[in-house]
């Protein structure tokens, strides 16, 4: 908003909230996205943490205002405070922990009912690095201890499709797919809902792009974690 004047491309803020069970890696995803960093022992989020990061799309710049919420069950009642007015949500689960997907589904339902209509929701299975098919070639480690994956891609993907969610599997540790999540969300935000919306026609294009991307990302895995988006 503030840098609108100087920016070559239209820039707009998008409020994004992260939800999900405790210790699935919400803060780590944000940290990876914002600072391209990873901390093994991240302090638990108390209430919520706030960070911002820009994401440059071909036609515009999205400034994410990220609300990273606490995951412990009892903090759930605080969540409405944070997802209020959110245009996008990242619902994260740990793909080595089936219960976290259940919790994620609860969050999706909560958002669909309580959050702003038209909120873009992405379902993200994190900790891909712990599975055999981790996209970054660290699979050998995982092989030693066996595959830690407990939630199949199919299951989560089917669910995501049913609920029309974006879907990704990521690793905050390796950085795999992290930026893509945010980019896809940026693309999926209907232009009309942006504070500085211009041209309604672009939104359809954006949506289809997001669709493409989603398909691609679930195809052959890219072994190299991308360095943050064009931020």
């Amino acid at each position: 908003m503030s840098d609108l004047a100087g920016a070559p491309r239209p820039s707009s803020s998008v409020k994004l909230v992260l939800l999900g069970e405790a210790a699935v890696g919400k803060s780590s995803l944000v940290l990876r996205f914002v600072n391209n960093d990873f901390q093994e022992n991240k302090e638990p989020t108390i209430g919520a943490a706030f960070l911002t990061q820009k994401c440059n799309l071909p036609t515009r710049t999205i400034k994410f205002e990220i609300w990273d919420t606490a995951g412990q069950e009892r903090f759930a009642s605080l969540a409405p405070m944070y997802y209020r007015n959110a245009q996008a949500a990242l619902v994260v689960y740990d793909l080595t922990k089936p219960t976290s997907l259940v919790k994620a589904k609860h969050w999706v339902a909560e958002l669909q009912r309580q959050a702003s209509p038209g909120i873009v929701i992405a379902l993200v299975g994190n900790k891909l690095d712990l599975t055999n098919d981790s996209g970054d070639g660290e699979g050998t480690d995982a092989n030693d201890s066996g595959d830690a994956r407990r939630v199949s891609t199919e299951e989560a993907k089917t669910y995501a499709e049913e609920e029309s969610l974006l879907f990704f599997e990521t690793s905050a540790k390796s950085g795999y797919n992290v930026t893509e999540v945010f980019t896809a969300i940026a693309n999926a935000i209907p232009e009309t809902s942006l504070k500085t919306a211009r041209g309604a026609g672009a939104s359809a294009a954006a949506a289809s792009r997001a669709e493409e991307q989603r398909v691609n990302l679930n195809g052959p895995r890219d072994p190299n974690a991308k360095e943050g988006c064009a931020c």
């Binding site: 108390i46 209430g47 609300w67």
Partner: peptide
């Protein structure tokens, strides 16, 4: 400006300013 004060202040109280 639609700023929710408690998103800022809640951690103050909850962790008694420690973090």
């Amino acid at each position: 400006s639609d700023v929710q004060l408690s998103v800022v202040s809640l951690p103050w109280f909850l962790s008694l300013y420690v973090n």
